[in-house]
Amino acid sequence: MAYNSKPAHHEEYQRKQHREEMKHQVLTFALMILFTFIAFGMVIMEVDTYFIIPTLIILAIVQVAFQLYYFMHMKNKGHDMPALMMYGGAAVALLTIITFTTLIWW
């Protein structure tokens, strides 16, 4: 960080990586904005609710995934433990929801 004594080819490699990263982020950002427009558009144009609800949920899930994997860097190395914890928590939450919908309000 302080004194940069890395060899030149390493620096070159890193710069390339950063450019790559930047490209991904811009791309996902554009996609997320597009998804938001689609979501709003469908509601404004009063598309059939049976179509709208599942589509909105799918779009939301994709956006969350983009957020986590691209903006919060979960796609990079060393994020196995956070991933394990998040999926574990999601599984418990899902189990709770299934219980409440099947066992309580049957």
Binding site: T96, T99, F100, L103, I104, W105
Partner: peptide
């Protein structure tokens, strides 16, 4: 409401 909700939450 539903009293059983508490039981589920408590035992989860």
């Amino acid at each position: 409401g539903n009293a059983i909700i508490w039981e589920h939450l408590f035992w989860i």
